[in-house]
Nucleic acid binder design. Sequence first.
DNA 1: AGCTTGACGGTGA
DNA 2: GTCACCGCCAAGC
Length: 136
Amino acid sequence: MPRSEEAAAWTYAVYNAVREVPHGKVTSYGHIARLLGKPECPRQVGVSLKALLSATAQPDAHYNNSNVPWQRIINAKGGISPRGANGASQQATALEAEGVQVTRGALGEYTIDFTTYGWFPDRLPSDLSSEEEDEE
DNA sequence: AGCTTGACGGTGA
DNA sequence: GTCACCGCCAAGC
């Protein structure tokens, strides 16, 4: 498991938030971070998702690439980060399989229309009834 | 043990 | 409109 309880909580929160993303919809790293109360840490969202593919972040294999729709998380520009390139195409394919229209650029860039497929709630559905504490 | 990079994003120039 | 810098935390070297 992650190095600290705090880090683990963050990681789980990320996975939980990602699972809230409806089928056929996409959201951004930054939005997930915002929902978790860490608008300045979109990077950590990516870090956590990265760990999803590694055994490091799977203390009990409760979260893995099968039950967490990481494919629905793209960057704020509406595109899939280059990453390993190969993984990007895989993500694009997975999204298309859900009915999401993915525009393929000549440079291997993938773009999704947020206007049509974007999912940006102010608060997580499951977060409304309980959990968290911050208000304004 | 320390330094750099990385699935990003917002703001300032 | 584009380019550069900063923040955050963990993993890799």
